[in-house]
Computed example of a mutant assay.
Amino acid sequence: MKELEKDGIIHGKVFAEVPSWVEYSITEKGLTLRPIILSLSEWGLKHVLHEENDDAK
Rank of each mutant, 00 (worst) to 15 (best):
A56T: 01
E52M: 11
I10H: 04
K2V: 12
Y24P: 04
T32Q: 03
I26Y: 01
I9A: 03
T32H: 06
E17Y: 14
V22Y: 03
E51G: 05
F15M: 11
P35Y: 01
G12Q: 00
N53E: 15
K13W: 04
L31Y: 14
L33K: 05
E42S: 13
A56H: 05
H11V: 12
D7T: 05
E42R: 08
I10A: 01
N53V: 11
L38C: 13
S39T: 02
I37L: 02
Y24K: 05
S25R: 01
W43I: 10
E3P: 13
L33Y: 09
I36Q: 06
I9L: 00
V14L: 07
F15Y: 10
L40K: 02
E42K: 08
S20C: 03
H50S: 12
M1I: 12
D54E: 13
K6W: 13
E5F: 05
H50P: 10
L49Y: 14
Y24E: 06
G44D: 12
K46V: 04
A56N: 12
L4Q: 00
M1W: 13
E51N: 08
K2L: 09
K2G: 11
S20L: 05
E42Q: 14
E17G: 08
T27L: 01
S25D: 07
L33Q: 03
D54W: 15
E5P: 07
H11F: 12
H50Y: 14
D54A: 12
K46D: 02
L33N: 07
K57Q: 11
K6A: 09
G30Y: 01
E28I: 04
A56I: 09
E28V: 02
I10F: 01
M1N: 10
G30D: 06
R34W: 04
S39K: 09
L33P: 08
K13F: 06
G12M: 04
K29Y: 00
K46L: 08
I37R: 04
S20V: 01
L4M: 04
H11Q: 11
E23H: 08
S41E: 14
S25A: 03
E51P: 06
P35D: 03
E5W: 08
W21R: 15
S25W: 02
V48F: 10
E23Y: 03
V14W: 06
E17D: 10
S20E: 10
H11P: 04
D7M: 13
P35T: 05
L45I: 11
P19Q: 00
H50Q: 15
F15A: 08
V18C: 07
H47Q: 08
E3K: 10
K57F: 13
K13Q: 07
R34T: 15
Y24T: 00
L38K: 09
P35M: 00
L33G: 03
F15H: 14
I26H: 02
E23G: 07
I9N: 05
W43E: 08
E51Q: 14
E51I: 11
I26K: 02
A16Q: 08
E23P: 03
E5M: 05
P35L: 03
D55M: 13
K57Y: 14
I26Q: 06
